[in-house]
Amino acid sequence: MTDIKLGEVSKPARNAEPVVKLAPPRSQARDIWDQFKTHKGAMTGLVILCLIILAILIGPFVWQIDPAYVNPDAAKMILGRNKPPTWAHPMGTDQLARDLLARMLYGGRISLAVGAVAMLISVFIGTGIGVLAGYFKRLDGPLMRLTDLFLALPLLPLLLVLMMLFGDTVRKVVGPEAGTFLLIVFAIGVTSWMSSARIVRGQVLALKEREFVLAARSIGTPARRLIIRHILPNVISPVMVAATLGIAGAIITESVLSFLGLGFPPDFPTWGRLLYDGVDYMQLYPSRVILPGLAISLTVLSVNYIGDGLRDALDPRIRGR
């Protein structure tokens, strides 16, 4: 019995990879995917995002130039600086004659990973605290005061302190690169959950008094099930917005962090950093800002459209219309 069930579940799951995690029951998953497919924007977004992910995953294997490579022959390096796109360098070179395509591909890996993981952390904490505070009156006070505290903390000293206290320890335990990554996503995640917590809490406060919640409670549904089955699906749309905005926010925050010397080592490219460095050269070499800017915007836009499509697909009232 169980074997068959598992097989049946995993079949549509393969078709609908990005969706299935959110909607385990089998028939619903297919419904959602069908609905999702009809959303043109969402499909375009999905395709573009997949292309970007593919490019940054496979790209560095195809385009094997080291993004941090500077020609030690100074004369060659000087000649190769700030070049427009050519076949050898399809996106041109930067002020140290480093290949911009390699930097964009490599930078995308870090930026996307930071953006996605930091967003997940922030949305997870935010939604959790928001739901708990909104649903349980006793937790509301303490949790919201905690939110106020975090909102009031000045970000920069907080990050400096975080890096100073935990930087060396974490780097030693999991290695310098993984350590820096962990610290950065943690730092961004912990300092950006507050607005989603407040928004979710506001929604939950209103939802809690709705008839369907009252009905569920009157038949003795335990709090945990009530939250998961009735409350969470109804706060999905602000959470989606928070998640899309969160990715953009995290990518930008990372660039500011590395600019402050708190992020990755200085020769590590990320999209945000490429954009930041490019601003100085904006008038002379516009492509220096256009490329990373475009990459960030495209990613954010496609995530946003996927979010739109997902929300529509997840809403039973819209689905099937």
């Binding site: 899309t244 953009a248 990518i251 954009l275 601003v279 800017g293 960030i296 915007s297 836009l301 946003n304």
Partner: peptide
Amino acid sequence: QYSWFDQLGTFIAMLGYSVPTFFTGVLMIV
């Protein structure tokens, strides 16, 4: 929803949010 106005609004809004002010500010000055 999904009218051209909505599409344009969404596009500009997401662009506005994903492009940092350290870039748009300097761009406006230029």
